[in-house]
């Protein structure tokens, strides 16, 4: 099972890094949650505002927008690489698997500003996976950035 799970987590990150967003969204269930809270203490996105609090629709808009040359916030488009380690299954039932991993995403946008153009986002990522007729799907991805409480500059690429 760990191989199957780990393949999915790596595939998800690779699709993001390759900007294959439509395929990325296909990995998620219809009523999924993609969530980057402002504190590791948050239990639910209803507890307070979030950096990202996306359902599938918002994920669609976000990624559609990334492909649009007029989205200034993403001009030039970010290039990313995810580095994943410590994939662990925390809980599993026949229908559901809770996975955690440590991830760093390096992001680069060439704005001619030297080191400022590259940023690192890192933290603990939790996936809740569901077994569906189509195979293993992501019902929830929660990213607890180590600097979750901090202020961020514009973020265009999903983490």
């Amino acid at each position: 099972m760990i191989v199957e799970v780990s393949d999915l987590i790596q595939l998800e990150a690779a699709l993001l890094d390759d900007c294959r967003y439509a395929e990325w969204i296909e990995l998620f269930t219809d009523d999924c949650l993609y969530w980057v809270p402002v504190s590791p203490e948050m239990q639910s996105p209803r507890d307070g505002p979030s950096h990202f609090r996306d359902d599938r629709q918002v994920m669609m808009v976000r990624t559609h927008r990334l492909a649009n040359p007029r989205s200034f916030g993403a001009e030039p488009s970010p290039r990313t690489v995810h580095i994943i380690s410590g994939i662990r299954i925390e809980e599993s039932t026949p229908e559901e698997i809770h996975v955690s991993s440590s991830q760093i995403m390096l992001e680069y946008r060439n704005r001619g500003r030297f080191e400022e153009d590259q940023r690192a986002f890192g933290g603990r990522v939790r996936h809740r996976l569901l077994r569906t007729a189509e195979g293993l799907r992501i019902a929830e991805k929660r990213i607890d950035l180590i600097n979750a409480e901090g202020a961020f500059n514009a973020m265009a690429a999903p983490l």
Partner: peptide, 11 residues
């Protein structure tokens, strides 16, 4: 949010 598409444009 800095990740809000609208705010990202403004910033």
């Amino acid at each position: 949010s800095a990740a809000s598409p609208v705010i990202a444009d403004d910033l």
